[in-house]
């Protein structure tokens, strides 16, 4: 079922990446790729290695072996700064927004625009923040001068996503973006994910919710016990098949480890 059927060269390509923590092989020879303008879902049970793969891509826990290509060139990513410089942004589940600051201040946090060499250029920042939010059709925010503490979960997610695409990013990785949201807000975030892909971003979405994934994903990568067991085209598969791969996908023999089947 593993397919790699054309459709443009990948934006990000991991080849045979592995990572172990002491005796624990967290991921083993995983291939993973995302194309520009595509939503790639990353699914798997708890402990399947989703987080380890993401943390390897952004360099928090660099891979032990394997190669990573970005935009066609081989890259070595040693930390989140390297990843950001390449254009890879992660929106973590906890979002990490400063509740006491308004939307504009959060979107520009750490990268404030300065005029006269000293003063924060609030107007330019506000203008740009509105542009980015509008490009994502985020219409539920009344004002970009609202303090984040007063926003709903979906609105916060929207702000965090908008923040991630402000700086020439090409690949946005969303970690469980709908985990804590109600039905209506989940809908908004899924729309947001689709819009990111429409605008040409590569999008990786990690989720446990297959229903959500089948709404937005173009392809689905399944990890199980640290190995990639399948890549599905959404159009050519169904939830049943994905669940089977998550729970009982074929595993390669890992040297030194007994695969628990």
């Amino acid at each position: 079922m593993t397919s790699d059927d054309g459709g443009g060269s990948p934006l990000l390509q991991c080849q045979g990446v592995s990572k172990s923590f002491g005796a624990v092989q967290a991921i083993y020879k995983v291939d993973f790729d995302v194309r520009a303008g595509e939503v790639m879902a990353l699914v798997g049970d708890n402990g399947a290695g989703k987080s380890t793969l993401i943390k390897g891509i952004v360099g928090i826990y660099p891979f032990d072996e394997g190669e990573v290509y970005f935009d066609g060139a081989q890259v070595r990513i040693h930390g989140p700064k390297d990843a950001a410089d390449l254009g890879i942004e992660v929106v973590y589940q906890d979002l990490a927004l400063a509740d006491n600051l308004d939307v504009v201040a959060n979107m520009f946090l750490g990268r404030e625009e300065i005029s006269n060499g000293l003063v924060i250029d609030e107007l330019a920042m506000e203008h740009r923040a509105q542009e980015v939010l509008e490009s994502l059709s985020v219409t539920t925010l009344k004002s970009v001068r609202q303090v984040v503490a007063g926003l709903s979960g979906g609105q916060r997610q929207a702000v965090a996503v908008a923040k991630s695409i402000m700086w020439d990013s090409k690949l946005v990785i969303l970690d469980e973006p709908t985990a804590a949201l109600g039905v209506a807000q989940t809908r908004q975030v899924l729309d947001l994910v689709l819009r990111l892909a429409e605008q040409g971003f590569g999008v990786v979405i990690i989720s446990h919710n297959l229903h959500d994934i089948f709404e937005v994903a173009d392809r689905i990568t399944v990890l199980r016990l640290g190995q990639r067991v399948a890549v599905f085209d959404k159009a050519a598969t169904n939830q049943q098949e994905v669940v089977e791969a998550i729970t009982a996908g074929d595993l390669a023999h890992v040297p030194g480890m007994e695969a628990a089947i």
């Binding site: 990490a96 006491n100 201040a105 946090l109 750490g110 990268r111 404030e112 300065i114 000293l118 924060i120």
Partner: peptide, 23 residues
């Protein structure tokens, strides 16, 4: 009005958010 001031408020609002923003 300054970046320093903004970062003070950010550290007080969420040290984690500030840290991830490179502050």
């Amino acid at each position: 009005k300054t970046r320093f001031g903004r970062h003070i408020y950010a550290v007080g609002g969420s040290p984690e958010a500030a840290r991830r923003a490179g502050i």
